[in-house]
Design a protein around this nucleic acid. Structure first.
Length: 426
RNA sequence: GGAGAGAUGGCAGAGCGGUCGAUUGCGGCGGUCUUGAAAACCGUUGACCUGCAAGGGUCCGGGGGUUCGAAUCCCUCUCUCUCCGCCA
């Protein structure tokens, strides 16, 4: 969430920048400042009463100790009034804080000044494109046909076991998954990330801290009996490692990588977007997370972007990088790059990674801070990115590498798969 | 799941219901000494809210209660440890 002080001191700027995310903040921001003023007033009143209370309690103590019981009793009677006032104020303060917090957690992060204007994905800015976009071969088929042809993924049985969007990977399909996960993890480790294996369920506090709650409540699977959420991305548990943490400046940047299954309800999705591997309820992803000094977070964002495009290059997939426009950015992000790979048989771009800088938006909620050069406490910046999400990578690999002899596995993956081709005589 | 013990500052570990935000040790930081380091010695060392400041307020696992006054008493929840049970 945004910090109250920043909002107070930059009201108009906050409203203007929120508008870039198509969020009309004029009323909300006014209300926030109003409530905060009220909060301060009430707090002050309460503090004064507490102060008087403490003072009197001390005096009473001293009187009793020096044997002046009568005077002490007299003073005791006077504390009743203060107590009632204190209770009322306390209650009022609690209500104000609750209302303030409810509003504050629903205000999105401010976009970085370089974020392009726009409302829809069409307004995103293509910042680079690489790789050859080959014309579609007459015989090329989409991945949902290839997975059936080579018996790699069984959507029907997955549907029987659980439901739509929960595929069953089989044989070389399963091995390809495992190969990709290991390849992505090894590459990240080479790039200096420390591997962690997080829990796949998180509590509400964690989901709030990274911004999934209350914003994306309906997108997460919730286990009601225990009040736990299935993670939509490893970002949630991994970033929450650092909740309520004070880091040393020399520990920055913190670099973590994690593989996890991801669970998303994807309520409201339909049509060609959900066909085959394009959109699933459960999928695999390797996620990179960094915690950075605010002075360097944008350099690190570029570093992460370069890292991810490097992976795509190694896999031999044509890709492009988009800088998301205000309207297409997530609630929590200040600047996001999306990486998309070209799927030849579908003749469309598929999003396979999203790399974002959240600046202090998450760390404010996380209470993730570090002591800076001057010994002052300040919130760190958090960043993360997919490196990478598997399903659409698999889709693109299958579609782009299909030949009459079968599907060719990229050289970098062969040591991981143990086979060079799917189908044919191999 | 059953029985018991516990939860205090970065860590360890004190704390008769009344100047306790908290003794002490370690660690950290600064200094003296030293060519440098170690050792020794001296000093310093929690977070948050509010205020220009002085100051005031809150925090001893979370929440509630008793009391003029709670780290200290009571209730409750959570977690940890030990033992038993069950089990990948």
């Amino acid at each position: 969430m945004l910090s109250l002080n920043f909002i107070r001191e930059h009201m108009q700027e906050v409203i203007d920048r929120l508008a870039i995310k198509n969020f009309n903040g004029s009323e909300t921001i006014g209300r926030i400042v109003e409530l905060d003023n009220f909060r301060r007033e009430t707090q002050k009143k309460l503090d004064d009463i507490q102060s008087q209370n403490n003072q009197m309690a001390k005096e009473i103590g001293l009187l009793f100790q020096s044997g002046k019981a009568a005077e002490a009793t007299l003073l005791k009677e006077k504390t009743g009034e203060l107590k009632t006032q204190g209770k009322d104020l306390d209650l009022a303060l609690e209500n104000i804080k609750k209302e303030l917090d409810d509003i504050l957690v629903r205000v999105p992060n401010l976009p970085h000044p370089s974020v392009p204007l726009g409302k829809t994905p069409e307004d995103n800015l293509v910042v680079m494109q690489e790789g050859e976009i080959l014309p579609i071969a007459a015989t090329a088929v989409p991945h949902w046909d290839l997975t059936t042809k080579y018996d790699l993924i069984d959507f029907i049985t997955g549907n029987k076991i659980t439901g739509a969007g929960f595929p069953l990977y089989k044989g070389k399909g399963a091995r390809l998954q495992r190969a990709l996960i290991n390849f992505f993890l090894d590459e990240a480790i080479k790039a200096g990330y420390e591997e962690v294996q997080p829990p796949y369920m998180v509590n509400a506090a964690s989901a709030y801290a990274t911004g999934q709650l209350p914003d994306k409540d309906a997108q997460m699977y919730h286990v009601g009996l225990d009040d736990l959420y299935l993670i939509p991305t490893a970002e949630v548990p991994v970033t929450n490692i650092y909740r309520d943490t004070i880091l040393k400046i020399q520990d920055l940047p913190v670099k973590n990588v994690a593989y996890s299954a991801c669970f998303r309800r994807e309520a409201g999705s339909y049509g060609k977007d959900v066909r085959g591997l394009n959109r699933l309820h459960q999928f695999d992803k390797v996620e990179i997370v960094q915690i950075a000094h605010p002075d360097h977070s944008y350099e690190i964002l570029e570093e992460m972007r370069t890292y991810v495009t490097g992976l795509l290059r190694k896999l031999g997939l044509p890709f492009r990088v988009l800088k998301l426009c205000g309207g297409d950015m997530s609630f929590t992000s200040a600047l996001t790059y999306d990486m998309e790979v070209w799927s030849s048989a579908q003749a469309r771009w598929l999003e396979v990674s999203s790399v974002s800088n959240f600046e202090t938006f998450q760390s404010n909620r996380l209470k993730l801070r570090f002591k800076d050069e001057t010994g002052k406490m300040q919130p760190a910046h958090t960043l993360n990115g997919s490196a990478l999400a598997l399903p659409r990578i698999v889709a693109a690999l299958l579609e782009n590498n299909q030949t009459p002899e079968g599907i060719e596995i990229p050289d970098v993956l062969v040591p991981y798969t143990g086979f060079e081709r799917i189908g044919g005589k191999a």
